[in-house]
Amino acid sequence: MSVVKIENLWVSYGSLDAVRGISIDIPRGEVFGFIGPNGAGKSTTIKVLATLLKHDRGMVWVNGVDVSRYPRAIRDSIGYMPDFFGVYDDLTAMEYLHFFAAAYRLPISKRKGIIHDVLELTDLTHKINSPVDSLSRGMKQRLALARVLLHDPDLLLLDEPASGLDPRARIEVRELLKELKNMGKTILISSHILHELGQLCSQIGIIEQGQMVAQGSLEEIYQQLSLMRVVHVQLAGKPNGILEQIQGIPGVESVEQQVDRMSIRLHEDQTSVEDLHDEICKLGGRIHMFQPEAMDMETAFMKLTHGKTN
């Protein structure tokens, strides 16, 4: 069963349609990356899932439960982290987490152990007695993640969790999210840091002006756009005319001979990277190195969107 299922969601602010007919399906254990410019409708959609905003039309379920009919049940199964998460400066990290453990109605006998576990997971054990206002922004973000993990939710709703962080702090948050993914958490994450979402997410949705303009795995989006992948190939021995034969493989746009390798521009909607490897072998090529370039999410994003907002 899908953890998140959205069908034809519409949300309006007065006469403005902020979200216009989007649908999302997130299976258990998947990470869904929500990409779009400011004002595209990402935060609005996440707030609907978090039961903080009522929608006008469509259906929204979390774990098969209707969000609009049973908001209290939904709140027990989600961890919501907004784009700017306020923390209480007069508390220590330990006091902050104890406060929310009480708010989540966690048994008193278990709170200390649970707080220790989430602090260890977020690598904040050494800051257990530090005042919140003494923490760096990156540590505050990790503390916010520790807070949403206290009640062990099925679904994490993370709205720009790396916003405003320096490069080191972004890497730390990304590694933490990978760990949560490995733990089997289902995650919906919005971000402008596109290449990091490409490394983390199993599914991606690109939204603009409240409408989903592309959805699927990064590879599927590339195929939809007919974007080309560059594959670097190094053959053992001399080519002996094989370059011309590779040029004839369906989907190969061009073959450029470089000093120690060739660069092949490939339409993956016609021939997959794996099939290209097999075809080169069939032509008698002895492959010493075969390296497809990583997918460039920025390219897909720029081609699909026009920088417009509602």
Rank of each mutant, 00 (worst) to 15 (best):
M81N: 01
M81P: 03
P82M: 03
D83S: 15
D83A: 11
F85D: 14
F85K: 01
G86N: 13
G86C: 15
V87A: 10
Y88C: 10
D90N: 15
D90R: 13
M94N: 12
E95I: 05
E95G: 06
Y96S: 08
L97P: 00
L97W: 00
H98K: 14
F99Q: 06
A101M: 07
A102W: 15
A103D: 03
Y104Q: 07
P107L: 04
I108M: 07
K110N: 11
G113R: 13
I114M: 15
I115L: 01
I115E: 02
D117S: 15
L119G: 02
T122L: 15
D123W: 11
T125D: 14
K127N: 14
K127D: 11
N129M: 13
S130C: 15
V132H: 03
D133G: 12
S134E: 10
S134C: 12
K140S: 10
K140H: 04
Q141P: 01
R142Q: 01
L143G: 02
R147W: 12
D152N: 14
D152W: 04
D154E: 08
D154M: 10
D159A: 06
P161D: 02
G164W: 01
G164Y: 01
L165R: 01
P167Q: 15
R170S: 06
I171D: 13
R174H: 11
E175T: 10
E175A: 07
L177A: 03
E179Y: 02
N182T: 11
N182D: 13
E196L: 04
E196Q: 14
Q203A: 15
G205K: 00
G205A: 09
G205M: 05
I207C: 06
I207D: 02
I207H: 10
E208S: 08
V213W: 01
Q215N: 11
G216P: 04
